[in-house]
Every structure is written in structure tokens, then in C-alpha cells.
């Protein structure tokens, strides 16, 4: 039962990654791609947290914290350059 639940969680996260990647590859505009990249990093964070809980590895949670900080900064920097281009 719980195993099925974990498979469902990881499958949904994977599906989200695939759809976000399609948006990243197809565009059509630059802001769409930036948001897709942000979504991919958030989904990767969710993946890391789910994996850490499932396999009882609390060390991996630090990776998620650092990824949260860095990806936020990356999105801010992208937004900064997008505004300058216009």
C-alpha cells in the first residue's frame, strides 16, 4: 500500500518534470522558458525531499535547502536581465 503511494508520488513528480521540460524546450517566449526552469528546480527539490523521506536520508534535506536558495537567486537574475532587454 505505502509502496504504491510512493510510486504514485515519484511518478507524478516525474510527469511534472517531463511537462516542464516540454515547456522549456518549446518556449515560445523567453519568460515561459524562465518559469519552466524555475518549475524544474522546484520539482527537483520535491524529488530530493521525497527521496530523503522514503529512504530515511536526512542529509539530503540540506541539498534541497541550498537548491531552494540558489534557484530563487537564479530566477531573480533571469528576471533582472529580462527587464533590461525590454
Amino acid at each position: 500500500m505505502t509502496d504504491a503511494l510512493w510510486i504514485l508520488i515519484l511518478a507524478l513528480l516525474s510527469a511534472g518534470l517531463v511537462f516542464a521540460f516540454i515547456r522549456l524546450a518549446r518556449g515560445p517566449y523567453l519568460p515561459d522558458r524562465v518559469i519552466a526552469l524555475d518549475l524544474i528546480s522546484i520539482l527537483a527539490m520535491g524529488f530530493i525531499v521525497a527521496y530523503a523521506v522514503r529512504f530515511d536520508q536526512p542529509n539530503f534535506l540540506d541539498v534541497a535547502i541550498i537548491l531552494a536558495i540558489i534557484s530563487f537567486l537564479g530566477t531573480v537574475a533571469f528576471a533582472y536581465y529580462l527587464e533590461r532587454r525590454v
Binding site: 536558495i69 540558489i70 537567486l73 531573480v76 533582472y80
Partner: peptide
């Protein structure tokens, strides 16, 4: 460094 750079951008 990323904390300081956030300050620099903002």
C-alpha cells in the same frame, strides 16, 4: 556569495 549577490541585484 549568493547572499551578497542577492543584495547587489536587489
Amino acid at each position: 556569495a549568493s547572499a551578497l549577490m542577492l543584495y547587489g541585484i536587489a
